[in-house]
Amino acid sequence: MSGDGVDAFLEMQAAERGAALNTISAYARDLGDMMQALHARGISPLDAGEGDLRDYLSGLARQGLAPRTQARRLSCLKQYFLFLAREGLRPDNPAALLEAPRLDTPLPRFLSEAEVTTLLAACEPEGDATPARRRRLLMARAALEMLYASGLRISELLSLPRRALDAAPGMMLVRGKGGRERMVPMSARARAAARTLMDLDAGRKSPYLFPGRGAARPMTRQGFDRIMHDVALRAGLDPQRLSPHVLRHSFATHLLAHGADLRALQVLLGHADIATTQIYTHVMLDRLRDAVAQHHPLSAMHDAAAT
């Protein structure tokens, strides 16, 4: 184990918590930035106190880093110093009592149900479409149907193997964050769109449902974004409003609007903590407000008195 425990900490995140490579890289950058700031003051992370870490975090604010970035850095520090304490590299966790900056919680951006319908209709190939054009639109249709029907993350969609559709009818097995697996719903429309794409791609011999230019690798996020941009224009939508996460938000928002339970939504989205799912409660609040307006006796009396 290195003297500052960083390498061991990163190995633990990967081995025990199944952290993704991007997460590990972000932790390494965040800890490297903190180490540089502490070393500039002649302080080792094994000796740093709560005041030293407060000074470091204050410096982030003075540099103009966004509150969300500051909160992410603090989360990394808390985990790192807790790891040092548990491994006996220092007797305490100086980050334990540090508080993250207040964060505004923006409402999730989503499409209306009518806009989703228009978007899917825009994926219909023209009668004189070239084979390449036809495949591109059928791929877009399969991807959009699956994202909207199941609330998948884009990383989950693009890494789907062809055998993902072999699960029980109406369901699909997905490997999400941290390697956690979950079953997600798969509508008949989405399954049919995916099967059409699979039949078209049978000659590619790719293990992926959405293969990239090289059959051995899945489509890249950049390639997928270009397809979404084109489809948005065909549908008459601002491409800036369309992204895989907007479709995930649309899936969740529309489910809640039609009466779905928040706990069920947590499972469908693969959220480890229901607090993450609660960003969608704005839909439930609207529904509750409408219910009171329609059914509460005093609300009815108020409406009658106003007329």
Rank of each mutant, 00 (worst) to 15 (best):
residue 53 L to A: 08
residue 288 L to C: 14
residue 288 L to H: 15
residue 131 P to L: 09
residue 197 L to R: 03
residue 163 R to V: 07
residue 263 R to L: 12
residue 39 H to F: 12
residue 92 D to L: 09
residue 12 M to V: 08
residue 191 R to D: 01
residue 306 A to I: 12
residue 162 R to Q: 07
residue 304 A to K: 15
residue 60 L to T: 03
residue 118 T to W: 06
residue 198 M to P: 06
residue 237 L to D: 05
residue 153 R to M: 09
residue 183 M to V: 07
residue 86 R to I: 05
residue 207 P to F: 11
residue 296 H to V: 13
residue 100 A to G: 06
residue 11 E to V: 12
residue 246 V to F: 12
residue 266 Q to A: 08
residue 73 R to W: 00
residue 117 T to N: 06
residue 70 Q to S: 12
residue 147 L to G: 00
residue 122 A to Y: 07
residue 80 Y to E: 00
residue 228 M to W: 01
residue 173 L to W: 09
residue 196 T to S: 11
residue 81 F to Y: 15
residue 105 T to H: 14
residue 182 R to E: 07
residue 72 R to D: 04
residue 173 L to P: 01
residue 260 A to M: 04
residue 272 A to M: 09
residue 222 Q to C: 06
residue 275 A to H: 12
residue 300 A to S: 15
residue 37 A to Q: 10
residue 46 L to I: 15
residue 248 R to N: 04
residue 163 R to E: 12
residue 119 L to E: 03
residue 57 L to D: 02
residue 115 E to D: 14
residue 3 G to M: 08
residue 274 I to H: 11
residue 169 P to R: 10
residue 10 L to T: 01
residue 101 P to N: 05
residue 117 T to Y: 03
residue 126 E to V: 06
residue 80 Y to C: 04
residue 112 S to L: 13
residue 28 A to N: 03
residue 295 H to K: 12
residue 208 Y to H: 13
residue 194 A to M: 07
residue 210 F to L: 01
residue 215 A to P: 05
residue 62 R to K: 14
residue 185 P to A: 08
residue 288 L to Y: 15
residue 15 A to C: 07
residue 134 R to L: 11
residue 42 G to C: 14
residue 57 L to Y: 04
residue 220 T to K: 03
residue 256 L to Y: 00
residue 298 L to I: 08
residue 246 V to E: 10
residue 154 I to T: 02
residue 181 E to V: 05
residue 92 D to G: 10
residue 10 L to Q: 03
residue 145 E to K: 01
residue 80 Y to I: 01
residue 139 M to L: 15
residue 54 R to E: 11
residue 85 A to E: 08
residue 46 L to A: 14
residue 79 Q to L: 11
residue 205 K to Y: 10
residue 278 Q to K: 01
residue 301 M to G: 14
residue 189 R to L: 11
residue 10 L to I: 10
residue 188 A to L: 09
residue 55 D to M: 12
residue 123 C to I: 04
residue 8 A to G: 11
residue 289 R to D: 07
residue 195 R to H: 09
residue 266 Q to Y: 10
residue 158 L to H: 02
residue 80 Y to R: 03
residue 100 A to E: 03
residue 108 P to Q: 13
residue 25 S to L: 14
residue 61 A to V: 13
residue 300 A to T: 14
residue 281 T to G: 06
residue 168 A to N: 10
residue 170 G to L: 07
residue 263 R to W: 13
residue 274 I to Y: 13
residue 223 G to T: 03
residue 80 Y to M: 05
residue 75 S to H: 07
residue 53 L to V: 09
residue 51 G to Q: 15
residue 295 H to T: 13
residue 117 T to G: 09
residue 156 E to G: 00
residue 245 H to P: 05
residue 193 A to G: 04
residue 278 Q to D: 01
residue 94 P to Y: 02
residue 245 H to E: 09
residue 97 L to S: 14
residue 221 R to G: 08
residue 60 L to W: 05
residue 64 G to V: 07
residue 179 G to C: 08
residue 110 F to L: 07
residue 40 A to I: 04
residue 121 A to I: 02
residue 30 D to T: 05
residue 228 M to E: 00
residue 214 G to K: 13
residue 106 P to R: 14
